[in-house]
C-alpha cells in the first residue's frame, strides 16, 4: 500500500479542513469521530500513523488513526478528553469542522508480515492505534498464520470498542484475551495485568512465527516485551508505538525527541531492537 506523504501537501504546517460526519461516545471521556475532507489532498494513511487534529481557536494535538485504512475517503479518530484541546475535540459533533495535518509517522509493518502469527498487545486506549492493523489482518486472515489480541484495561467499563472486540472474538480464526486490572463481582472475564496473559496466550504458538505489536502505557509495553522475549519472540519481531510531546509533527519543533530519533518521523512505531537501549533509561 502506498500513501502519498503529507510532505507533498502545500504547507505541512497548515491544517486541511475536514467535516465531522459522525461523532459518538465510546467509553467515559472517550469519543470517536468520522471525518470527511473538505479541502483537497490525500486522505489515505497506513495503520499506526497519526494526525494532528485542530480544534478552532483552541489548539492542536496528535491523535492516532484508528479507522480502516482500506476506506480511503474518511478518517476515524478516537480521543480521550485529558487536556484543553482533547476536550474540545471530544466536544465536536456532526457538521462541525476540524483541522487535520497528516498523516505523519511510521506505520505498523503489518502488510509485510504475511505468513506470520500477528500478536497484538493493547493497553487501555492503545487499542485505537492498533485497530487499523487488526482490520488488515482480519481482512486478509488467510495470509497470516494466526491472529491473537491481548487487551487490557483498567476495568470492564474502560474497555474500548467492546462490542467490536466481542464480534472479533466470535470468529473461530481469532484468539482474543481480554483482561482488566479491577472488576466488580459479576465480571466473568479475566482480572490481572495484560502482561500476565501473554505467556498463556502464546502457550500453543510457535514463537518463531510471532510478529508482535504493542501499544499502551510505556511501562506495560516494557513488561510486555519482557514476557514476549521470555516466550522466545525475537526483539526484531516486536514493534511498539511511543508517545511524546508533539507540536509540529514534521521534525521542526524538537519536542518529541527520543534519543537520536524524532517520534514524529522515526516513530511512533519502532521496531523494539532499535530502541531497546533507550527504553529502560529514565528521562531520555
Amino acid at each position: 500500500m502506498t500513501v502519498q506523504p503529507a510532505s507533498l501537501a502545500a504547507d505541512p504546517m497548515v491544517p486541511r479542513r475536514f467535516r465531522v460526519d459522525r461523532a459518538w461516545s465510546e467509553i467515559d471521556g472517550v469519543r470517536s469521530m468520522e471525518l470527511r475532507p473538505l479541502d483537497s489532498g490525500p486522505v489515505a494513511f497506513e495503520p499506526g500513523q497519526f494526525n494532528m487534529l485542530y480544534a478552532f481557536g483552541v489548539g492542536e494535538i496528535a491523535v492516532s488513526l484508528s479507522g480502516d485504512a482500506a476506506q480511503r475517503d474518511r478518517l476515524v479518530h478516537t480521543t480521550r478528553a485529558v487536556g484543553e484541546v482533547s476536550r474540545a475535540i471530544t466536544q465536536l459533533n456532526e457538521g462541525d469542522m476540524v483541522g487535520v495535518r497528516g498523516p505523519f509517522g511510521t506505520a505498523w509493518p503489518i502488510a509485510r508480515q504475511t505468513g506470520r502469527h500477528a500478536v497484538f498487545v493493547a493497553g487501555g486506549l492503545g487499542l485505537a492505534p492498533l485497530r487499523p492493523a487488526i482490520y488488515h489482518v482480519l481482512a486478509n486472515r488467510a495470509d497470516f498464520a494466526g491472529l491473537t489480541l491481548i487487551y487490557g484495561a483498567r476495568s470492564p467499563q474502560d474497555l474500548l470498542y467492546a462490542d467490536e472486540v466481542a464480534r472479533w472474538k466470535s470468529r473461530f480464526d481469532v484468539e482474543i484475551e481480554v483482561t482488566v486490572d479491577h472488576a466488580a463481582p459479576g465480571w466473568t472475564g479475566r482480572v490481572g495485568v495484560v502482561t500476565t496473559v501473554i505467556d498463556r496466550a502464546l502457550a500453543g504458538v510457535d514463537p518463531a512465527l510471532v510478529s508482535a505489536f504493542l501499544c499502551g502505557p510505556e511501562i506495560m509495553m516494557r513488561y510486555g516485551v519482557m514476557s514476549l522475549e521470555a516466550a522466545g519472540v525475537g526483539q526484531d519481531r516486536i514493534w511498539v508505538s511511543l508517545e511524546r510531546n508533539m507540536k509540529c509533527a514534521i521534525g521542526f519543533c524538537g519536542h518529541c525527541q527520543f534519543g537520536p530519533t524524532f517520534v514524529c518521523r522515526d516513530g511512533p512505531v519502532y521496531r523494539h531492537d532499535q530502541i531497546a537501549h533507550l527504553i529502560n533509561k529514565s528521562e531520555v
Partner: peptide, 23 residues
C-alpha cells in the same frame, strides 16, 4: 531550533491565530 506553537483567539472567538515561538 526547538519551538513551541501557541493558538490564540480574539475575544469574539471568530479569529484564531497560530504562532510559533522559540522553546
Amino acid at each position: 531550533f526547538c519551538s513551541d506553537v501557541e493558538d490564540v483567539s480574539d475575544l469574539s472567538g471568530d479569529h484564531a491565530e497560530r504562532w510559533r515561538s522559540w522553546d
